[in-house]
Simulated scan of single mutants.
Amino acid sequence: MARSKINLLVIDDDDINIFIIKKIVEKTGYDVDMASQANGKLAIDYLQEMLDTNGPFPDLILIDINMPVLNGWEFIEAYEKMNVDKNPHMYLLSSSVYENDIEKAKTYAIVNGFISKPLAIERLKELFDALD
């Protein structure tokens, strides 16, 4: 296993997706502390609070694209402006099958990749293993 505890942040406005990801995380066998936020604005606020309070900053962030208030792309742009000195692995996790979304994800240096929903247990284990 990669590390003692993995801090995971899932940014998704769909409660069912959050529930499914939580169940998949449990099945990986890894020690994971999972937080979720319903949109990019709440996620930015959460990350700022973690920075301000020296709380556990995510090792891995999974970002849905289509959300209210601040979508996935807007979240990434807002995160870049935060000038955070931490480098969590970030993946867009979307049901989008549009090639332009996949290509757009590649234009952001801080985005590690694009994952199509649904998230598979094997893929999540790969993401956890890549954190070292």
Rank of each mutant, 00 (worst) to 15 (best):
residue 113 G to T: 04
residue 46 Y to G: 04
residue 126 E to F: 02
residue 66 N to L: 11
residue 30 Y to F: 14
residue 79 Y to L: 12
residue 94 S to Y: 07
residue 54 N to E: 13
residue 98 Y to R: 14
residue 2 A to W: 01
residue 84 V to H: 08
residue 126 E to Q: 11
residue 67 M to C: 05
residue 51 L to P: 08
residue 125 K to L: 04
residue 2 A to L: 03
residue 6 I to M: 01
residue 69 V to K: 14
residue 112 N to D: 15
residue 80 E to H: 00
residue 119 L to D: 08
residue 109 A to Y: 13
residue 132 D to H: 15
residue 28 T to Q: 05
residue 123 R to T: 15
residue 106 K to S: 10
residue 48 Q to C: 14
residue 104 K to E: 10
residue 29 G to H: 02
residue 71 N to A: 09
residue 91 Y to K: 00
residue 18 I to K: 03
residue 34 M to Y: 06
residue 20 I to T: 12
residue 91 Y to H: 03
residue 53 T to W: 02
residue 131 L to V: 00
residue 66 N to T: 13
residue 89 H to Q: 15
residue 12 D to I: 02
residue 3 R to N: 04
residue 36 S to C: 11
residue 102 I to R: 12
residue 103 E to C: 02
residue 54 N to Y: 08
residue 2 A to K: 14
residue 118 P to N: 04
residue 34 M to N: 06
residue 113 G to S: 03
residue 103 E to W: 02
residue 23 K to H: 11
residue 28 T to L: 03
residue 43 A to Y: 03
residue 102 I to P: 06
residue 120 A to T: 13
residue 6 I to H: 10
residue 70 L to C: 10
residue 112 N to Q: 12
residue 41 K to C: 09
residue 5 K to P: 01
residue 125 K to G: 01
residue 91 Y to N: 10
residue 64 D to A: 07
residue 32 V to Y: 06
residue 40 G to N: 07
residue 64 D to Q: 04
residue 127 L to H: 05
residue 112 N to C: 04
residue 47 L to K: 01
residue 54 N to D: 15
residue 62 L to N: 09
residue 58 P to S: 05
residue 27 K to L: 09
residue 67 M to P: 11
residue 97 V to D: 15
residue 96 S to G: 04
residue 108 Y to M: 04
residue 14 D to M: 07
residue 52 D to H: 13
residue 128 F to V: 00
residue 80 E to Q: 12
residue 90 M to H: 07
residue 91 Y to F: 14
residue 65 I to N: 08
residue 118 P to C: 09
residue 103 E to N: 13
residue 21 I to M: 11
residue 68 P to A: 08
residue 44 I to M: 06
residue 2 A to S: 15
residue 12 D to Q: 06
residue 132 D to W: 11
residue 13 D to Y: 04
residue 111 V to S: 04
residue 6 I to C: 00
residue 98 Y to W: 10
residue 13 D to M: 01
residue 3 R to H: 06
residue 67 M to D: 14
residue 118 P to D: 09
residue 102 I to G: 00
residue 79 Y to C: 09
residue 121 I to P: 02
residue 36 S to Y: 12
residue 54 N to H: 12
residue 18 I to E: 13
residue 39 N to T: 04
residue 5 K to S: 02
residue 70 L to T: 13
residue 88 P to V: 02
residue 51 L to Y: 08
residue 90 M to G: 05
residue 107 T to Y: 01
residue 13 D to L: 00
residue 20 I to W: 07
residue 122 E to N: 07
residue 78 A to M: 08
residue 66 N to I: 10
residue 97 V to W: 11
residue 37 Q to I: 03
residue 64 D to S: 03
residue 55 G to A: 06
residue 15 D to H: 12
residue 21 I to R: 00
residue 13 D to H: 09
residue 59 D to T: 01
residue 58 P to I: 05
residue 99 E to K: 12
residue 109 A to P: 07
residue 19 F to I: 09
residue 89 H to K: 14
residue 40 G to T: 07
residue 33 D to S: 11
residue 43 A to K: 00
residue 95 S to W: 09
residue 131 L to E: 00
residue 117 K to N: 09
residue 95 S to H: 05
residue 88 P to G: 12
residue 127 L to P: 03
residue 94 S to V: 03
residue 32 V to Q: 04
